[in-house]
């Protein structure tokens, strides 16, 4: 992480600790905390970190934005921060000004397509758009154009993710965008999906770091058979495996974030880094959630415990921007097409 990245991450951590403590959020009867948190994040310039100053943002580096997302993952933050960052990034790449307020982006699945009609309107359907219901604007990629759209102009269904957050099918019926600009060369739908993959991987890694910490703490506190359960070898080995999964998710996610932050184009190396991050962090989410729940026992299965805020969120993130099976098939086909002799050189180039 760069020096500015760590400063930005500290700012984010302070805001989340003050306004989005998972225990307090879990006990809250209404969503009032969300407004306060969002305002603080926006005031600190974190929501539009990936938007240059001349377009209304705070002009942070890509690495800084990923650092913010790692922190957001550690707090399992139930606000559209990642979505707004991504939308801001997409708009900025096309030179469009980013509006204030929460945003999301469409499409959010690799198979969905939007088109820009000859009359300048947008058509098509985007499924599983995270937080669409809570977003004032959507950044949309339609072919080789980027558009800013008011969410109110689209038709939304009532979908929710595994974590109970909005995950809506957004239908564009000849929607007139607020602004349109051509996407820069190389920014196509696969590139947008890969960027989304890395964002979700980084959030997952952050969530897993928090899960490891809370699970180790619980194992040291909980007494059974007259000693802390951390003293049982079977529990120790489960936690060692959890540490391995957390390590894999962290490494794959932060490696891909680092690679994207340094790269100019979405080349073969970025493709491997980003798909590997999505695949491996999703696998780690699955394994890690299972171990954390096993160690916590019944208390971890209750609504009042915060474990589910992390596990359900990262399990639902697996499905955004293409799930791990989709990208595994894509990566497998890519490696097969390059051939056996070009396989190791690709791995060694990362």
């Amino acid at each position: 992480m760069s020096e500015s990245g760590s400063i930005v991450a500290e700012t984010a951590a302070r805001i989340f600790a003050d306004l989005a403590d998972p225990q307090e959020v879990n006990r809250a009867r209404d969503g009032a905390w969300k407004g306060r948190l969002w305002q603080a994040l926006a005031d600190a310039g974190l929501t539009l970190a990936w938007v240059p100053e001349e377009n209304g943002g705070s002009g942070a580096e890509l690495a800084d934005g990923f650092a913010i997302l790692g922190v957001a993952g550690r707090y399992a933050a139930a606000v559209p921060l990642a979505e707004t960052l991504l939308a801001g990034w997409l708009l900025s790449r096309a030179g469009l000004r980013a509006p204030e307020g929460a945003m999301s982006l469409a499409p959010a699945r690799p198979e969905d397509r939007l088109v820009l009609n000859a009359d300048g309107t947008l058509s098509g359907q985007a499924r599983g758009v995270p937080f669409a219901k809570e977003a004032r604007h959507l950044a949309a990629l339609a072919g080789s154009s980027v558009a800013l759209v008011e969410t109110a102009a689209c038709r939304l269904n009532e979908g929710v993710s595994l974590a109970g957050e909005p995950s809506n099918t957004v239908t564009f019926d000849s929607v007139k965008p607020v602004a349109v600009a051509p996407a820069p060369a190389g920014l196509n739908q696969p590139a947008l999906m890969l960027m989304g993959c890395v964002v979700r991987s980084v959030e997952t890694a952050g969530a897993l770091e928090a899960i490891l910490e809370m699970t180790v703490r619980y194992a040291n506190e909980r007494v059974a058979f007259e000693r802390p359960i951390a003293k049982f070898q079977a529990v120790q080995h489960n936690l060692a495996r959890l540490a391995g999964e957390v390590s894999a998710a962290m490494t794959a996610a932060y490696s891909a974030a680092d690679a994207i932050a340094r790269a100019d184009t979405f080349d073969d190396v970025i493709f491997l880094e980003a798909t590997a991050a999505k695949i491996r962090s999703a696998e780690a989410a699955q394994e890690g959630a299972a171990i954390a729940h096993q160690v916590h026992g019944a208390i971890g299965f209750t609504n009042e415990h915060i474990l589910h805020r992390y596990t359900l969120r990262m399990l639902s993130w697996r499905d955004d921007f293409g799930n791990e099976s989709y990208w595994a098939a894509a990566l497998g086909n890519h490696v097969a097409a390059r051939g056996a002799d070009e396989f190791w050189p690709l791995v060694a180039a990362c």
Binding site: A252, A329, A330, L331, G332, C350
Partner: peptide, 22 residues
């Protein structure tokens, strides 16, 4: 041109290998 099952399995192994190496 592997079938989808082989491609998906291969892709996971490549992702795991890359992660271990990193």
């Amino acid at each position: 041109k592997p079938d989808i099952r082989s491609a998906e399995g291969l892709g996971r192994l490549v992702a795991q290998l890359h992660t271990l190496r990193r």
